Simulated scan of single mutants.
Amino acid sequence: MYGIVNKAIQDLVTDNFGAEKWEEVREKSGVDVDFFLSNEPYDDDITYKLAGAAAEVLNISVGEVLNAFGEWWVLKTGKEKYGGLMEAGGNNLKEFLINLPLFHNRIMLMYPKLTPPEFKVSNIEENSIYIHYHSKREGLQEFVRGLLVGLSKMYMIDSKIELMQSRDDGNTHEIFKVSW
């Protein structure tokens, strides 16, 4: 993953729990990087180690860390770093989610070594949509749930996010139903 991801984890911990907690997370993770360069690729293992260490230090589950990070990614990192791109995604939550499959195509222009997930949509209804999440990376479904929560908050929509299908159950990908 790119350094911007690891930097966002650092910012989440630092802004919410303080610099001392971040140092504790970094030490516990065994990650020997003092600062992350946003547009440099890093091994995925670093991100997983940081999330695991944050869970231990903050005494919450890795799923809770990933969920909080997904929400943070949209509301802080996304808005600050990609504000125009986020705004161009749609005028409301439904439009943004319908356009989500195209979002990473635009991001890949900025990060050419990116291996993004693939999103597809189905079951588009007036007040709900299914988001299909395909990725070579496993264990990030709670991050995606957090992203969907963050997008809902960005559009000031009260939503319900249900995991309809998971790779944990032997399926090929995750499916989330987003209702509002």
Rank of each mutant, 00 (worst) to 15 (best):
N123E: 15
A8Q: 04
G84K: 15
G90H: 08
D169E: 12
R106Q: 11
G30V: 10
T115N: 14
L114K: 06
L85C: 03
S135H: 13
D168T: 03
G52M: 04
N39T: 10
L100G: 04
R167F: 04
E71M: 03
P101V: 05
G52E: 09
E27R: 12
S152G: 13
N67F: 04
F176V: 03
G139M: 14
N67K: 06
E162Q: 03
H104W: 14
K153S: 07
K120Q: 12
V31C: 00
T172V: 05
T115R: 12
V62M: 05
H132C: 07
E174G: 08
N67G: 02
R137T: 06
A19D: 08
Y111K: 08
Y133Q: 04
A54F: 03
Y82M: 15
E64V: 09
L151R: 00
V65I: 14
E20L: 03
E95Y: 06
P101C: 02
I131H: 00
D11A: 14
D158A: 11
N99C: 02
G3F: 08
N105P: 01
H104I: 10
I124F: 12
R137C: 02
E125W: 12
K21Y: 04
S135E: 08
I175P: 01
Q10V: 03
V33E: 12
A54G: 06
M164T: 02
W73E: 05
S61W: 00
E125T: 15
S61K: 01
T77S: 11
L102K: 15
P116W: 00
G63P: 06
H134G: 00
M110R: 10
F119S: 08
W180T: 15
V31H: 00
D32Q: 02
K113M: 06
Y82S: 14
Q141E: 11
G139W: 12
L140V: 14
T47Y: 06
Y82A: 15
N105Q: 09
S29L: 10
R145I: 03
P41Y: 13
Y133L: 09
V121R: 03
L50A: 05
M108D: 02
W22A: 12
E125R: 15
M164S: 03
V65K: 02
Y133S: 07
M86K: 10
A53R: 05
M110A: 08
E95F: 06
A51I: 13
V121G: 05
V149W: 09
N67P: 01
G150D: 00
I60D: 03
W22R: 11
E142S: 07
